[in-house]
């Protein structure tokens, strides 16, 4: 099946500074993909290229099979886009903005939008500019869902939202994508929210794809083991094997796609004694931090 998003060998520089280096990944239909990475890893650059606000130095980006820089209007109608910060037209009220957007999308379903709006504590004539950050995010979300797009790109949906609105956002997306017909790309810094939401995970590190894996396999396969810190413990990182050794004050940790025997063998090979080695549960956030580092 044709991937809904396909990035092929994207490379881009800002002046002489590399932003993306030969980035390739794809999003298959009906999947929710989380695009993760530290600040400056290249996520925003990728999103801008996806939305054709940036022309990469080399490489191509295909959305629904078409080059992202030459999307036909028909294809654009099938793509929803949430701008970072939930940017929308502040001078509209919720009715006016629905009236405006409904003219552009053939599959527009106002019920979805107004259902979300009914949950907000706002007056119908209240202008969007006077709403709180969380209320604005719901308006932006409602407009995208009412569009009934085949692909939605959420650029940092969580920016400025309190936990309540974040949770609401996640639940709405989850319900929306439940029929398996929608493809969604998300970026966010609040990794714990994405724990049970995303199907696929693409992790960026310094402009390159560090990891591109199904979320389930990542959660199940990537383990964390802790052991007492001894003088022999030295921090180590092997990006190719996704292996990380962190030296802590009292206890150190080993992260990687290893079962327990393999973990012991790895430490033994490095001359690190770990008689008290024990596995510890790792959230998606723990895995992310382990892979990308704390600093």
């Amino acid at each position: 099946m044709l991937p809904v998003i396909e990035c092929r060998h994207l490379t881009h520089y800002y002046g002489d500074k590399p932003a993306l280096l030969d980035v390739s990944w794809l999003l298959r239909p009906g999947r929710i993909c989380g695009l993760l990475g530290r600040n400056g890893a290249g996520k925003t650059t990728t999103i801008n290229i996806l939305n054709s606000f940036l022309t990469p130095r080399s490489g191509r980006c295909l959305l629904l099979g078409e080059d992202s820089h030459q999307l036909a209007p028909r294809t654009k109608a099938r793509i929803g886009y949430l701008i970072e910060g939930h940017i929308q037209y502040g001078f509209f009220n919720i009715n006016q903005i629905e009236h405006f957007y409904s003219r552009f999308y053939p599959n527009w379903t106002p019920a979805i939008y107004y259902h979300l709006m009914s949950k907000l504590d706002i007056t119908p004539r209240q202008r969007i500019a006077t709403m709180s950050c969380g209320q604005r995010s719901q308006v932006a979300l409602g407009l995208i869902l009412a569009q009934n797009p085949d692909l939605i790109i959420f650029d940092d949906y969580s920016m400025g939202l309190d936990p309540g609105y974040r949770r609401l956002f996640i639940e709405v997306i989850h319900d929306y994508a439940a029929d398996g017909k929608r493809s969604i790309l998300l970026t966010s810094h609040i990794i714990q929210d994405l724990e049970n939401l995303i199907d696929d995970c693409v992790i960026y590190q310094q402009g390159r794809v560090l990891l591109d894996l199904e979320a389930r396999r990542l959660r199940d396969g990537f383990r964390k083991y802790t052991f007492a810190t001894t003088p022999a413990v030295a921090g180590a990182r092997d990006d190719a094997r996704h292996l990380v050794i962190e030296r802590g004050e009292k206890r150190s940790a080993l992260h990687g796609f290893l079962d327990e025997p393999a973990a012991r063998a790895e430490l033994a090979a490095r001359g690190i004694p770990a008689p008290d080695l024990r596995p510890e549960p790792a959230t998606l956030e723990d895995i992310f931090i382990a892979l990308t580092g704390k600093y």
């Binding site: 939305n51 606000f53 209007p73 028909r74 294809t75 654009k76 109608a77 793509i79 886009y81 701008i83 910060g85 940017i87 929308q88 037209y89 502040g90 001078f91 552009f104 999308y105």
Partner: peptide, 17 residues
């Protein structure tokens, strides 16, 4: 208002040329 926060992206994303 269109160029603040680069809001013009909303217009450019609409399904028309």
């Amino acid at each position: 208002p269109e160029v603040q926060a680069r809001r013009v992206r909303l217009v450019l994303h609409l399904p028309l040329g």
